[in-house]
Design a protein around this nucleic acid. Structure first.
Lengths: 141, 141
DNA sequence: TATAAACCTGACCAAAATAGTCAAGTATCA
DNA sequence: TGATACTTGACTATTTTGGTCAGGTTTATA
Protein backbone atom coordinates (compact mmCIF):
# COMPACT_ATOMS: atom_id res chain seq x y z
CA UNK A 1 0.00 0.00 0.00
CA UNK A 2 1.41 3.31 -1.02
CA UNK A 3 0.42 6.90 -1.02
CA UNK A 4 1.52 8.64 -4.16
CA UNK A 5 3.12 12.00 -4.20
CA UNK A 6 0.59 13.51 -6.56
CA UNK A 7 -1.93 13.62 -3.75
CA UNK A 8 0.70 14.89 -1.41
CA UNK A 9 1.72 17.67 -3.78
CA UNK A 10 -1.89 18.66 -4.29
CA UNK A 11 -2.37 19.06 -0.57
CA UNK A 12 0.89 20.92 -0.13
CA UNK A 13 0.08 23.31 -2.92
CA UNK A 14 -3.38 23.98 -1.59
CA UNK A 15 -2.17 24.60 1.94
CA UNK A 16 0.26 27.09 0.47
CA UNK A 17 -2.47 28.66 -1.62
CA UNK A 18 -4.85 28.81 1.33
CA UNK A 19 -2.25 30.53 3.40
CA UNK A 20 -1.63 33.26 0.86
CA UNK A 21 -5.19 33.41 -0.34
CA UNK A 22 -6.33 37.02 -0.20
CA UNK A 23 -7.10 39.79 -2.59
CA UNK A 24 -4.60 38.76 -5.23
CA UNK A 25 -4.48 35.39 -6.91
CA UNK A 26 -1.48 33.23 -6.16
CA UNK A 27 0.62 32.18 -9.16
CA UNK A 28 1.77 28.64 -9.62
CA UNK A 29 5.24 29.98 -10.04
CA UNK A 30 5.26 31.23 -6.46
CA UNK A 31 3.90 27.96 -5.15
CA UNK A 32 6.46 26.08 -7.18
CA UNK A 33 9.29 28.09 -5.66
CA UNK A 34 8.04 27.95 -2.10
CA UNK A 35 7.15 24.27 -2.10
CA UNK A 36 9.82 22.91 -4.41
CA UNK A 37 7.36 21.33 -6.82
CA UNK A 38 7.98 21.49 -10.55
CA UNK A 39 5.86 24.10 -12.29
CA UNK A 40 4.84 21.72 -15.06
CA UNK A 41 3.62 19.20 -12.58
CA UNK A 42 1.71 21.81 -10.63
CA UNK A 43 -0.06 22.82 -13.80
CA UNK A 44 -1.29 19.30 -14.30
CA UNK A 45 -2.52 19.15 -10.75
CA UNK A 46 -4.24 22.52 -10.79
CA UNK A 47 -5.94 21.76 -14.04
CA UNK A 48 -7.71 18.94 -12.25
CA UNK A 49 -8.44 21.00 -9.19
CA UNK A 50 -10.03 23.65 -11.35
CA UNK A 51 -12.25 21.16 -13.14
CA UNK A 52 -13.53 19.97 -9.81
CA UNK A 53 -14.15 23.57 -8.78
CA UNK A 54 -11.81 23.55 -5.85
CA UNK A 55 -9.89 26.51 -7.23
CA UNK A 56 -10.59 29.28 -9.72
CA UNK A 57 -8.08 30.53 -12.20
CA UNK A 58 -7.34 34.13 -13.05
CA UNK A 59 -5.61 34.62 -16.33
CA UNK A 60 -3.22 37.28 -17.48
CA UNK A 61 -0.50 39.20 -15.76
CA UNK A 62 -0.82 39.06 -12.00
CA UNK A 63 -3.06 36.07 -12.53
CA UNK A 64 -2.97 32.85 -10.67
CA UNK A 65 -5.34 30.76 -8.61
CA UNK A 66 -7.69 31.42 -5.76
CA UNK A 67 -9.69 29.05 -3.61
CA UNK A 68 -13.20 28.53 -4.85
CA UNK A 69 -14.58 27.81 -1.39
CA UNK A 70 -13.60 28.59 2.16
CA UNK A 71 -10.67 26.55 3.38
CA UNK A 72 -12.88 25.11 6.07
CA UNK A 73 -15.23 23.70 3.46
CA UNK A 74 -12.56 21.95 1.42
CA UNK A 75 -12.09 18.48 2.80
CA UNK A 76 -9.15 16.32 1.94
CA UNK A 77 -11.51 13.86 0.32
CA UNK A 78 -12.38 16.51 -2.23
CA UNK A 79 -8.75 17.11 -3.02
CA UNK A 80 -7.84 13.47 -3.46
CA UNK A 81 -10.91 12.89 -5.56
CA UNK A 82 -9.90 15.73 -7.82
CA UNK A 83 -6.43 14.44 -8.53
CA UNK A 84 -7.59 10.84 -8.95
CA UNK A 85 -5.90 9.76 -5.77
CA UNK A 86 -8.37 7.24 -4.51
CA UNK A 87 -8.17 4.43 -2.06
CA UNK A 88 -8.20 1.58 -4.50
CA UNK A 89 -8.47 -1.68 -2.70
CA UNK A 90 -9.68 -4.81 -4.35
CA UNK A 91 -10.58 -4.85 -7.99
CA UNK A 92 -13.01 -7.70 -7.56
CA UNK A 93 -15.29 -6.37 -10.22
CA UNK A 94 -13.15 -7.11 -13.25
CA UNK A 95 -15.27 -9.91 -14.55
CA UNK A 96 -18.49 -8.40 -13.42
CA UNK A 97 -20.57 -11.53 -13.56
CA UNK A 98 -18.30 -13.52 -11.36
CA UNK A 99 -16.96 -12.80 -7.92
CA UNK A 100 -13.37 -12.17 -7.04
CA UNK A 101 -10.78 -14.54 -8.51
CA UNK A 102 -13.24 -15.74 -11.10
CA UNK A 103 -15.03 -17.75 -8.44
CA UNK A 104 -18.72 -17.50 -7.93
CA UNK A 105 -18.45 -15.88 -4.52
CA UNK A 106 -16.72 -12.91 -3.00
CA UNK A 107 -13.15 -13.45 -1.97
CA UNK A 108 -12.48 -13.93 1.72
CA UNK A 109 -11.22 -10.43 2.19
CA UNK A 110 -13.83 -8.56 0.22
CA UNK A 111 -15.61 -7.00 3.17
CA UNK A 112 -12.33 -6.21 4.85
CA UNK A 113 -11.28 -3.81 2.12
CA UNK A 114 -14.65 -2.21 2.08
CA UNK A 115 -14.32 -1.49 5.77
CA UNK A 116 -10.83 -0.16 5.34
CA UNK A 117 -11.92 2.18 2.60
CA UNK A 118 -14.63 3.55 4.82
CA UNK A 119 -12.19 3.92 7.66
CA UNK A 120 -9.72 5.91 5.59
CA UNK A 121 -12.34 8.04 3.97
CA UNK A 122 -13.69 8.96 7.37
CA UNK A 123 -10.31 10.30 8.23
CA UNK A 124 -10.09 12.41 5.11
CA UNK A 125 -13.66 13.58 5.40
CA UNK A 126 -12.96 15.11 8.75
CA UNK A 127 -9.82 16.98 7.79
CA UNK A 128 -10.21 20.29 6.05
CA UNK A 129 -7.68 22.48 4.37
CA UNK A 130 -8.22 25.00 7.13
CA UNK A 131 -7.21 22.41 9.72
CA UNK A 132 -3.91 21.90 7.95
CA UNK A 133 -3.22 25.60 7.64
CA UNK A 134 -3.84 26.03 11.34
CA UNK A 135 -1.68 23.09 12.23
CA UNK A 136 1.19 24.40 10.19
CA UNK A 137 1.00 28.07 10.90
CA UNK A 138 -0.83 28.19 14.20
CA UNK A 139 -3.13 30.99 13.29
CA UNK A 140 -6.60 31.32 11.92
CA UNK A 141 -7.32 32.57 8.47
CA UNK B 1 -2.97 5.26 -3.04
CA UNK B 2 -3.24 1.60 -3.71
CA UNK B 3 -3.42 -1.62 -1.80
CA UNK B 4 -1.41 -4.32 -3.46
CA UNK B 5 -2.67 -7.79 -3.98
CA UNK B 6 0.23 -9.42 -2.20
CA UNK B 7 -1.18 -8.34 1.12
CA UNK B 8 -4.61 -9.37 0.00
CA UNK B 9 -3.44 -12.82 -1.05
CA UNK B 10 -1.60 -13.27 2.22
CA UNK B 11 -4.76 -12.55 4.16
CA UNK B 12 -6.88 -14.76 1.94
CA UNK B 13 -4.48 -17.65 2.26
CA UNK B 14 -4.27 -17.31 6.01
CA UNK B 15 -8.02 -17.16 6.43
CA UNK B 16 -8.21 -20.35 4.41
CA UNK B 17 -5.45 -21.91 6.47
CA UNK B 18 -7.06 -20.84 9.73
CA UNK B 19 -10.31 -22.39 8.67
CA UNK B 20 -8.80 -25.77 7.90
CA UNK B 21 -6.23 -25.60 10.64
CA UNK B 22 -6.44 -28.78 12.68
CA UNK B 23 -4.47 -31.95 13.18
CA UNK B 24 -3.03 -32.12 9.70
CA UNK B 25 -1.05 -29.37 8.06
CA UNK B 26 -2.65 -27.66 5.11
CA UNK B 27 -0.76 -27.85 1.83
CA UNK B 28 -0.21 -24.82 -0.32
CA UNK B 29 -1.55 -26.82 -3.21
CA UNK B 30 -4.95 -27.01 -1.52
CA UNK B 31 -4.95 -23.33 -0.70
CA UNK B 32 -3.92 -22.57 -4.25
CA UNK B 33 -6.83 -24.54 -5.62
CA UNK B 34 -9.42 -23.22 -3.22
CA UNK B 35 -8.40 -19.58 -3.43
CA UNK B 36 -7.25 -19.38 -7.02
CA UNK B 37 -3.80 -18.09 -6.18
CA UNK B 38 -0.76 -19.35 -8.10
CA UNK B 39 1.25 -21.93 -6.17
CA UNK B 40 4.53 -20.23 -6.95
CA UNK B 41 3.28 -16.96 -5.61
CA UNK B 42 1.93 -18.61 -2.49
CA UNK B 43 5.33 -20.09 -1.83
CA UNK B 44 6.91 -16.66 -1.90
CA UNK B 45 4.31 -15.33 0.47
CA UNK B 46 4.50 -18.24 2.91
CA UNK B 47 8.24 -18.07 2.98
CA UNK B 48 7.90 -14.62 4.46
CA UNK B 49 5.13 -15.63 6.82
CA UNK B 50 7.26 -18.44 8.15
CA UNK B 51 10.24 -16.17 8.75
CA UNK B 52 8.04 -13.91 10.82
CA UNK B 53 6.77 -16.94 12.74
CA UNK B 54 3.18 -16.54 11.76
CA UNK B 55 3.08 -20.07 10.35
CA UNK B 56 5.11 -23.24 10.77
CA UNK B 57 5.98 -25.55 7.92
CA UNK B 58 5.82 -29.32 7.94
CA UNK B 59 7.94 -30.98 5.30
CA UNK B 60 7.53 -34.20 3.45
CA UNK B 61 4.52 -36.04 2.11
CA UNK B 62 1.34 -34.91 3.81
CA UNK B 63 3.22 -31.81 4.81
CA UNK B 64 2.05 -28.26 4.61
CA UNK B 65 1.60 -25.30 6.93
CA UNK B 66 -0.03 -24.73 10.28
CA UNK B 67 -0.65 -21.55 12.21
CA UNK B 68 2.03 -20.75 14.72
CA UNK B 69 -0.32 -18.90 17.04
CA UNK B 70 -4.01 -18.84 17.71
CA UNK B 71 -6.00 -17.11 15.03
CA UNK B 72 -7.19 -14.62 17.59
CA UNK B 73 -3.63 -13.58 18.32
CA UNK B 74 -2.66 -12.96 14.73
CA UNK B 75 -3.49 -9.38 13.88
CA UNK B 76 -3.62 -8.08 10.36
CA UNK B 77 -0.76 -5.76 11.19
CA UNK B 78 1.43 -8.81 11.70
CA UNK B 79 0.47 -10.22 8.34
CA UNK B 80 1.07 -7.04 6.40
CA UNK B 81 4.36 -6.50 8.16
CA UNK B 82 5.46 -9.99 7.20
CA UNK B 83 4.83 -9.56 3.49
CA UNK B 84 6.32 -6.06 3.40
CA UNK B 85 2.96 -4.49 2.81
CA UNK B 86 3.35 -1.34 4.79
CA UNK B 87 1.64 1.94 4.76
CA UNK B 88 4.32 3.95 3.11
CA UNK B 89 3.44 7.56 3.09
CA UNK B 90 5.97 10.28 2.68
CA UNK B 91 9.60 9.49 2.18
CA UNK B 92 10.73 12.75 3.63
CA UNK B 93 13.90 11.25 4.97
CA UNK B 94 15.75 10.74 1.70
CA UNK B 95 18.28 13.42 2.36
CA UNK B 96 18.46 12.78 6.01
CA UNK B 97 19.99 16.07 7.04
CA UNK B 98 17.37 18.13 5.36
CA UNK B 99 13.63 18.12 5.68
CA UNK B 100 11.20 17.16 2.98
CA UNK B 101 11.82 18.57 -0.51
CA UNK B 102 15.35 19.42 0.39
CA UNK B 103 14.12 22.34 2.47
CA UNK B 104 15.19 22.85 6.00
CA UNK B 105 11.77 22.23 7.46
CA UNK B 106 9.15 19.52 7.30
CA UNK B 107 6.80 19.69 4.36
CA UNK B 108 3.34 21.03 5.01
CA UNK B 109 1.76 17.63 5.01
CA UNK B 110 4.29 15.78 7.10
CA UNK B 111 2.16 15.44 10.20
CA UNK B 112 -0.87 14.56 8.14
CA UNK B 113 0.67 11.37 6.83
CA UNK B 114 1.88 10.46 10.24
CA UNK B 115 -1.65 10.72 11.52
CA UNK B 116 -3.01 8.72 8.64
CA UNK B 117 -0.53 5.95 9.23
CA UNK B 118 -1.58 5.75 12.83
CA UNK B 119 -5.22 5.73 11.84
CA UNK B 120 -4.79 2.86 9.40
CA UNK B 121 -2.61 0.86 11.71
CA UNK B 122 -5.21 1.16 14.43
CA UNK B 123 -7.67 -0.47 12.10
CA UNK B 124 -5.36 -3.37 11.31
CA UNK B 125 -4.29 -3.77 14.91
CA UNK B 126 -7.84 -4.42 15.96
CA UNK B 127 -8.65 -7.02 13.32
CA UNK B 128 -7.49 -10.55 13.93
CA UNK B 129 -7.47 -13.53 11.64
CA UNK B 130 -10.11 -15.06 13.84
CA UNK B 131 -12.41 -12.11 13.21
CA UNK B 132 -12.17 -12.69 9.49
CA UNK B 133 -12.82 -16.39 9.76
CA UNK B 134 -15.92 -15.69 11.79
CA UNK B 135 -17.11 -13.04 9.39
CA UNK B 136 -16.75 -15.36 6.46
CA UNK B 137 -17.94 -18.63 7.88
CA UNK B 138 -20.11 -17.53 10.77
CA UNK B 139 -18.80 -20.03 13.22
CA UNK B 140 -16.10 -20.19 15.86
CA UNK B 141 -12.98 -22.23 15.51
C1' DT C 1 15.64 -46.99 -0.30
C1' DA C 2 13.26 -44.94 -3.99
C1' DT C 3 10.06 -41.67 -5.10
C1' DA C 4 6.89 -38.30 -4.98
C1' DA C 5 4.90 -34.66 -2.39
C1' DA C 6 5.84 -30.52 -0.55
C1' DC C 7 8.73 -26.94 0.88
C1' DC C 8 12.50 -23.46 -0.34
C1' DT C 9 15.23 -20.02 -2.93
C1' DG C 10 16.58 -16.81 -6.15
C1' DA C 11 16.60 -15.05 -10.67
C1' DC C 12 13.93 -13.18 -14.05
C1' DC C 13 10.37 -10.53 -16.65
C1' DA C 14 6.15 -8.11 -18.71
C1' DA C 15 2.80 -4.86 -17.75
C1' DA C 16 1.15 -1.05 -15.34
C1' DA C 17 1.57 3.02 -12.66
C1' DT C 18 4.14 6.97 -11.28
C1' DA C 19 6.32 11.20 -11.59
C1' DG C 20 7.33 13.87 -14.01
C1' DT C 21 9.18 16.73 -18.75
C1' DC C 22 8.41 19.04 -23.06
C1' DA C 23 6.17 21.62 -26.52
C1' DA C 24 2.89 24.44 -28.21
C1' DG C 25 -0.40 26.85 -27.52
C1' DT C 26 -4.44 30.67 -25.57
C1' DA C 27 -6.10 34.42 -22.74
C1' DT C 28 -5.66 38.78 -20.62
C1' DC C 29 -3.75 42.60 -18.16
C1' DA C 30 -0.67 46.63 -18.20
C1' DT D 1 1.73 44.35 -28.02
C1' DG D 2 4.38 42.05 -25.12
C1' DA D 3 4.84 39.68 -20.89
C1' DT D 4 2.79 36.84 -17.75
C1' DA D 5 0.29 33.06 -16.58
C1' DC D 6 -2.92 29.63 -17.49
C1' DT D 7 -4.11 25.34 -20.63
C1' DT D 8 -3.58 21.11 -22.96
C1' DG D 9 -1.81 16.98 -24.59
C1' DA D 10 1.79 14.01 -25.85
C1' DC D 11 5.64 11.71 -24.35
C1' DT D 12 8.98 9.03 -21.38
C1' DA D 13 12.23 7.05 -17.89
C1' DT D 14 11.93 4.74 -13.71
C1' DT D 15 9.90 1.99 -10.32
C1' DT D 16 6.71 -1.23 -8.60
C1' DT D 17 3.82 -4.98 -9.03
C1' DG D 18 2.46 -9.44 -9.78
C1' DG D 19 3.72 -12.78 -10.93
C1' DT D 20 6.61 -17.13 -13.61
C1' DC D 21 10.41 -20.33 -13.99
C1' DA D 22 14.09 -23.27 -12.76
C1' DG D 23 16.38 -25.78 -9.76
C1' DG D 24 16.94 -27.19 -5.77
C1' DT D 25 16.21 -29.70 -0.50
C1' DT D 26 13.61 -32.32 2.86
C1' DT D 27 10.98 -36.10 4.47
C1' DA D 28 6.97 -39.49 4.86
C1' DT D 29 5.64 -43.58 3.08
C1' DA D 30 5.28 -47.50 0.01
Amino acid sequence: MRLTSKGRYAVMALVDLARFNGINPVSLRDISLRQGISLDYLEQIFSKLRKKEIVQSVRGTQGGYILNKKAKEIKLTNIFDAVDEKVKTVQCKKESKKGCNGKSTKCLTHNLWDELETHINNFFDKKSLDDLVKENFERRL
